[in-house]
Computed example of a mutant assay.
Amino acid sequence: MANKNITIYNLEPEVFKLKRIIFLLALCLAGMLLAGCAPRPAATPAEPPAPVTLAAPAAPAIKVYTTFYPLYDFAGKIGGERAEVAKLVPPGVSPHDWEPDPGTLSGLKAADLLLYNGLGLEPWLDKVVGALETTKLIPVNTTEGIEPLRGVPCGPACTPDEEEKKKKEAAGELPDPHVWLDPLLALKQAERILESFVAADPDSEQYYRANFAVLKGQFEQLDAEYREALQGKARDKFIVTHLSFAYLAERYGLKQVGIAGLSPQAEPTARELAELVELIRAYGIRYIFQEPLVSPRLAQMLAAETGAGILEINPLEGLLPEEISAGKDYFSVMRENLVQLYRALE
């Protein structure tokens, strides 16, 4: 039987090579495990965040007094948190009726500005300013530069105290002070307030001008609403308790007829009331406007005689406390007046 050649391979070197690889792998694995278990150096604690400091609201830079509500509203909107604004005439009181007291003077002594309407609305103003022993307070006439309309201060039944005014009445020399009821003239008053604020506190000029720009837009929007609503109305005459809407009437092509004159305290004569009755009937006037701070007696008398209704219209001489609590302002009340005018003139 023939012998087969068998080739025998020497496996020893291969075995040793394999063992070496296994040994090296084991060492690497052990090293990795040891590294994982070894304590790590403590992390450096992060710096705590710096505390956030909120800027405190800027304290008012100027103290401002106003004589009555519209100026108080305009000044507050322009001055914002940079002006401390107060008014002399309290809520629910007409500036025609109010008289200052000693407390008025003590408050004004610390003020920088006193904003007033002028044109005879505040007959007590000179007495108040003259009694102040301070040169700090600057009075600001907000109607300066406005050409006033002229009117009749009261009817023939003027009191003896009105005799001096009666002399001027015939010549039509007494100015109508109710300029704020024309939105564009009220804007001019706001411009005077802006100028006085900038002069008193120039560091806040940009702040005041930014606030005024917003306010100016509100006046212009209100004017546009009045023009749109009142143009082409069936009637153009309206009857009011006293002659406070002449500027508004002139701006929008209307004619006001007053039960009393520029002063709400004036009483018409029996003849004047009879003439009003004839006018209401002749022009088909359906409503008589009553003001919130004026006695309704005469309006009710005319309404009973003619069958006309009574609507409220507000000359904004002084808002009632409940109106202020409800958040009303110059613009909301002027829009309420527009609704009433639209209804009366259609």
Rank of each mutant, 00 (worst) to 15 (best):
M1W: 09
Y9S: 12
N10P: 00
F23N: 05
L27D: 00
L27E: 00
L29A: 13
A43K: 11
K63L: 07
K63H: 12
T67C: 04
F68H: 07
L71V: 03
I78S: 03
G79N: 04
G79F: 03
E84V: 08
V85N: 01
L88K: 02
P90T: 08
P95G: 01
E99A: 14
L105E: 12
L121W: 02
P123F: 10
W124T: 04
W124V: 06
D126E: 14
K127I: 13
T134A: 07
L137M: 10
G145R: 02
E147C: 05
L149D: 02
C154N: 06
G155I: 06
G155K: 10
A157N: 09
T159K: 13
E162P: 07
K168N: 13
V179Q: 09
V179N: 06
L181G: 03
D182N: 14
Q189P: 02
R192N: 11
I193K: 01
I193M: 06
E195T: 14
E195R: 04
S204D: 10
E205S: 14
Y207W: 08
F212I: 15
F212R: 04
V214C: 07
V214W: 06
Q221R: 12
D223G: 09
A224R: 15
E228G: 07
Q231Y: 07
K233M: 12
F238W: 02
F245N: 02
E250N: 15
E250C: 05
Q256R: 08
S263Q: 05
P268F: 08
E272F: 10
E272D: 11
A274G: 12
E278I: 12
E278V: 11
L279S: 13
I280A: 11
I280K: 08
R281H: 14
E291M: 11
S295N: 09
S295T: 13
L298I: 13
A299P: 10
M301C: 10
L302G: 14
A303G: 14
A304W: 09
L311S: 07
E312I: 14
N314S: 05
G318W: 00
L319I: 02
E323P: 04
S325I: 06
F331Q: 00
V339N: 10
V339Y: 05
A344S: 12
A344K: 03
